[in-house]
Simulated scan of single mutants.
Amino acid sequence: MDQAFDAVLFDRDGTLIRDVPYNGDPGRVAPMPGAREVLRDVRAHGLRTGVVSNQSGIGRGLLTEEQVAAVNARVEELLGRFGTWQICPHHPDDGCACRKPAPGLVLAACEALNVSPERTVVVGDIGADVVAAQAAGAVPVLVPTGVTRPEEVERAPRTAPDLLAVLEMIR
């Protein structure tokens, strides 16, 4: 990989792990195809990694912070340690600055990793991930899944058919 980037931030649900809505059970965590390989390669090339994830189940009263932390711990058991976890626990109606598509999670992750947003790639599966990256000044890559709307794919400046293809884009 060239040194155009210093960090890669990943959305959690639907990007790193299979999306199980409002999952509070670590036993239901399953990595997305290619996640282990992508993370191994990214880390081997010295790039910092982080997770930026909306977890509105907390704000909705469907999950506790402890349940989300347990799921995140399982993600790290399966995929390795991340340099930062930035989680928005708010309800979508709260109007916070962190919930994607707002840039707060991306900016906080960049600060925690001591990298500039311009040298950071944000990988996600929905339009909110792309918009958050753009609003923060980072480079978005959309990896569409079954929940990604066609108009989100059309508007994304960069798309990859799967996580492994993201590697080719950032090398």
Rank of each mutant, 00 (worst) to 15 (best):
P103D: 03
D93F: 08
L163N: 07
V71F: 04
T84K: 08
K100S: 08
P161M: 13
A30F: 09
G24S: 11
I170D: 02
L142V: 05
V153I: 14
A135N: 11
T84S: 11
N54E: 13
G95W: 10
Q55C: 01
H91V: 13
F82D: 03
G95I: 14
A156N: 05
A7M: 06
A132W: 01
H91R: 14
A109S: 10
A69I: 07
G80S: 07
A136T: 06
A4M: 13
C96S: 11
M1S: 13
P150I: 12
G57I: 07
P103G: 08
D94K: 14
R158T: 14
L9D: 03
R18S: 08
V115Q: 02
A156D: 11
L9Y: 00
C98P: 00
E151Y: 10
C96H: 06
P157R: 14
A70G: 12
A112D: 10
A160F: 06
E168S: 14
A133C: 11
Q3G: 14
G104S: 09
P150R: 14
A165N: 09
R60A: 08
V29A: 02
E37H: 14
G124Y: 03
E76W: 07
A132M: 06
A135I: 01
C110G: 02
G57E: 09
V139S: 01
R158E: 12
A133L: 03
A138V: 12
D93P: 02
G27F: 02
L105S: 06
L9G: 01
R28V: 08
R149L: 14
L107M: 10
A138C: 07
F10P: 00
A112N: 06
G57K: 08
H45T: 07
V131F: 00
A109K: 04
V68Q: 07
C110Y: 00
P33Y: 04
E76L: 04
V29S: 02
E111A: 15
D19N: 15
G34S: 13
G34N: 12
E76F: 02
R119E: 10
C110K: 08
L113V: 11
D93C: 03
G57M: 07
V68T: 09
